[in-house]
Amino acid sequence: MEDKELLALIKKEESRQYGFQLLVRKYQKQVYHHIRRMVISHEDADDLTQETFVKVWQNIDKFREDAKLYTWIYRIATNETLRFLDKKKRRWGLPLVNVEEQLEKLVDNGPYISGDEISRKLQKAMLRLPEKQRLVFQMKYFDDMKYDEIAEVLGTTVGNLKAAYHWAVKKIEASLKED
């Protein structure tokens, strides 16, 4: 179903819930995997995916239809994920922990993770990138998003994104050679 049809259903009080269920079914896998690549753990990705769709439900009336629905949802998911990672790094009263190191260990030993050696190495190399660069790389590489769509999600220019992607690929190559 097209986004316009979904939004028309959600706008009507009698079909609001049904329309939203269809929206979740349409985008849940993309959103979950977008978040999962950033947080690695299934439990965290599950919680953040639910929270993302709760926010979508709460704010759907504010959505401007001149924007793309899925870039708007990605934006919410990205903000939720970055806030979560930030909280994880700044927990009060606890010694500073290297979250990326913890996530790399999870790639090796965590539950619900399979895949071959090269996929694991790539995921670990991605974890060594700065968060924004990692987001650009994964949206371009895994989700095949266009630069102007990624620009809508991250609120930056296409020029910046092209440079960020270029550097991300270079760093990943160097990281894979080191391993």
Binding site: H33, R36, R37, H42, V107, Y112, I113, S114, G115, D116, I118, S119, R120, K121, L122, Q123, Y141, F142, V169, I172, E173, L176
Partner: peptide, 11 residues
């Protein structure tokens, strides 16, 4: 790696 790495790692 650019071709191979796209396989889904997460279940």
């Amino acid at each position: 790696w650019y071709e191979e790495g796209k396989k889904n790692l997460f279940e």
